[in-house]
Amino acid sequence: MEPDPRFTLANERTFLTWLSTALALSAGGVAMAALPSDVFVPWIRTTLAVVLVALSALAAGMAYPRWRHIQRALRAQAPLPPPALAAVFGYGVALVAVIALVLVILAA
């Protein structure tokens, strides 16, 4: 059975949002890596950049499988799968933000 087009389109918007989130995380990682060497300790700056880019790759890599699983559940009128990686992204970005904030405060 075909799901209501509104649900299919909402699922597609969510997929595109995961891709835009991946792009933003990637840009944040590149920006962190591009900071001058006197901003933050170099190994911490590199670590934060790697975490952001890794989260970006994870978001981009999981966007389509998540879209596909939700689309299958919609067609089967089954429960939607839980957002398994939401905690990873939430805590990952929060960790980078807190570390960067602490470093900014200590540098002031």
Rank of each mutant, 00 (worst) to 15 (best):
A63S: 02
F7K: 14
A86M: 02
S56R: 11
A60E: 09
F15N: 12
V88L: 15
R45P: 01
A49D: 11
R72G: 09
V96L: 10
G28N: 11
P42L: 03
G61W: 07
L101E: 10
I99C: 03
T47V: 05
F40P: 13
A100D: 05
R68D: 03
A86P: 00
V98A: 02
V51F: 02
L95P: 02
A63N: 01
A63L: 00
S20I: 12
A87I: 14
S20V: 15
M1Y: 00
M32F: 03
A34N: 13
Q77R: 14
A33S: 08
G90T: 00
L106M: 09
V41E: 14
V96M: 02
M62Y: 00
G28F: 02
V30G: 10
L103N: 11
V102A: 15
I70L: 06
D38L: 09
S37C: 04
Y64Q: 11
A78H: 07
T47D: 08
L103H: 08
L48N: 01
D4H: 07
P81K: 11
H69Q: 13
A10T: 06
G90E: 03
L58A: 03
T21R: 14
P65S: 05
A60G: 07
E2L: 13
L55K: 06
D38H: 08
G28S: 09
P79H: 04
M62L: 05
A31K: 11
R45S: 06
A97C: 12
G61L: 01
L52F: 06
P42A: 09
V41A: 14
T47A: 11
I105Q: 05
P82N: 12
V102P: 05
A54M: 03
A57Y: 01
L95R: 13
A27T: 14
L80Q: 15
A107P: 09
L74S: 07
M32V: 10
G90I: 08
A84G: 10
V102R: 10
W18I: 06
A87V: 15
V53I: 13
A78V: 03
H69Y: 08
P81Y: 05
A59P: 05
W18S: 08
A27W: 14
V88A: 11
L58T: 06
V104F: 04
T14I: 12
S56W: 00
P36Q: 00
F7I: 14
L35C: 06
G92Q: 07
A10Y: 02
S20R: 12
P3C: 05
A57K: 07
L74P: 10
H69S: 14
V102G: 09
A76L: 15
A63H: 04
W18V: 02
A107E: 12
P42W: 00
H69P: 06
A87K: 14
L23A: 13
P82V: 12
L16A: 06
A73F: 07
S20W: 07
L55C: 08
H69R: 15
V102I: 15
Y64E: 09
R66M: 08
Y91A: 15
V51P: 08
A86N: 04
Q77L: 11
A87L: 15
P36F: 03
P65C: 03
A49V: 11
A22T: 02
V39Y: 06
A22N: 04
A94P: 10
N11Y: 01
G61T: 01
G61I: 06
G92E: 03
A107T: 13
A87F: 12
A22M: 00
A54P: 05
L58F: 01
R13K: 13
R13W: 07
V93P: 07
